[in-house]
Design a protein around this nucleic acid. Structure first.
Lengths: 145, 145
DNA sequence: GCACACCTTCGAGCCGACTCGAAGTCAAGC
DNA sequence: GCTTGACTTCGAGTCGGCTCGAAGGTGTGC
């Protein structure tokens, strides 16, 4: 599987845009920003190869994680593996919590899709039971005046 | 559990901000935008109650789902339960896919945190195997010129 | 009755991530 | 050699979601 294609094809920005589903304008923007730097022909035209598709996947995944462009560059381009490992270790719990929230959300959506509450707020009671602690208001009484 | 507190306390915007972790400026903005509309005293000052904490949870969950303010208003305020149910049914697959992506991402992060690859792109090979189909470039060869 | 903390509105500014338009370059085909 | 179409850069605009600052109102304590 994944046999190396003959002749290492390369694509123009428009071709790569069509192939990847990312608008050409965005690809150019990412190139300018150093997020996904295209190869260049002598005339300055951009060319994309298989290596770019791999990096593109990483970028899309990082975006799904809610990373900013700066963070994506950090995790993809930091030459020091230890720094990257530290960043990954920091990010992991955030991702796990996000998964937990989304799972609760999926439950809520399934409920709303089937039961059609008279008003959405009435779901609040059981949502409160399921959300992880740090995804909801503290409920400690504020110091009253 | 959740005994109704005596006297139904209400909080000022600053108190509610401290309690919820949302900046007061943002609460005012959400009030203006109709996302989380505060009660008002006769002098115009905002007051928040337990009902607002429930709605706040919904808002935060919707934000975690990547909803825009418009969408949040739609799902929370549409009087027609059927429309809400339709929206929820549409949104559910997106959420499930997002969970899948995040789970792969968590695996990647765990890997990066432990193994510290020489360069991040070298993870690409096995990432390609695990991502759901629509979260990666199509890899169909573009029509060559 | 005055200070002071806290509240109000309103308009402007900021930030990230695009998105668009104008003007110019380049290569292939007729 | 001229058209055509796809490419280039650069600057400006858009959009969502805040965030800030100014100017003024409110209410409690001394």
């Amino acid at each position: 599987m994944h046999t190396v294609p003959p002749q290492h094809p390369q694509w123009t920005v428009a071709q790569f845009a069509e192939q990847s589903g990312i608008p050409a304008t965005t690809l150019r923007y990412w190139d300018d920003e150093g997020l996904l730097v295209a190869d260049r022909l002598v005339n300055g035209h951009r060319r994309y190869t298989y290596g770019h598709t791999a990096r593109l996947q990483m970028i899309q995944m990082c975006q799904a994680l809610g990373c900013t462009a700066d963070e994506i560059r950090l995790i993809l381009d930091t030459p020091d593996p230890a720094a990257r490992a530290r960043y990954a270790a920091e990010k992991l719990p955030e991702v796990l919590e996000k998964i937990e929230i989304l799972r609760v959300a999926a439950t809520v959506l399934r409920h709303v899709a089937e039961c059609a509450h008279p008003d959405a707020a009435s779901c609040g009671a059981w949502m409160r039971e399921q959300l992880p602690d740090d995804a909801r208001p503290a409920h400690r009484p504020p110091r009253r005046s």
